[in-house]
Amino acid sequence: MAIIVDHVNYIYGQDTEQAVHALQDINLQIPDGQFIGIIGHTGSGKSTLVQHLNGLLKATSGSIYYNGQDIYDEGYNLKDLRSHVGLVFQYPEHQLFEVDVFSDVCFGPKNLGLSKKEVELRAFDALRQVGFPEELFYTSPFDLSGGQKRRVAIAGVLAMKPDVLILDEPTAGLDPKGREDILDMVKRLQQESGMTILLVSHSMDDVAEYVDRILVMDHGRVVFDDVPRQVFSHVEELEEMHLAAPQVTYILRDLKKAGIEVDENATTVDEAASTILQAFGKK
């Protein structure tokens, strides 16, 4: 078990009148190598949750264990934890600051106190992993396009070689092509390096294709925690939380209502296509 979240509560602005109970009794087990999607409406607590996993926020009550160690123990090295649990924030391109792309990516590994050679090697690797063109390594990060900036920012976290990579809405504000590129890249990372990935999003279509497991959050609670297929069978409950199932789920449900024998639990476009073809082939 890589990460265990045990009865975690978090309250924003505890002593004021506007105290918000952002997380309510969260219990999770995140095994190594899993690709997890965290879905929830704006304000459901998903960003708050992931900021606990690398110790940026301290739970009001409850504990978090990383590889069996309580991260709230006195003397626990949080900086070390942050190099193992990489967190890419929403709009990560806003954190770029260096004069060129390469030095910006170097920032993370440099903070780990590695040798210059190792730092540069890691930066180079990370930029290659995100598919960033080599001829742009020494341009200013502020001259890049939105999608490229985001790649650089993700590389900045990857260069620390984390075991767990958390991405908070990595596709926000990108065009459909940019979205797909980023998500494909994340999937490739998980398959090639066996990284544990947590993908925060509010779009089911984003995650349905990629993840092994979905956490649905609403009002600071984890409502569903299951494989995509099971989660999407609760269409009505999801809609009550202002979420939606992927578009293919709706198509398949409508087809089924119209009397066509399809498997309505298919979650990805490919699965849906094959079950539809099958249904029509049978006729």
Binding site: Q51, L56, K79, S83, V88, H94, Q95, G156
Partner: peptide, 13 residues
């Protein structure tokens, strides 16, 4: 606060 957290996540001190 946000940028600070983002840089902390990258090991800034």
């Amino acid at each position: 606060d946000k940028i600070m957290k983002a840089q902390l996540a990258r090991g800034a001190d």
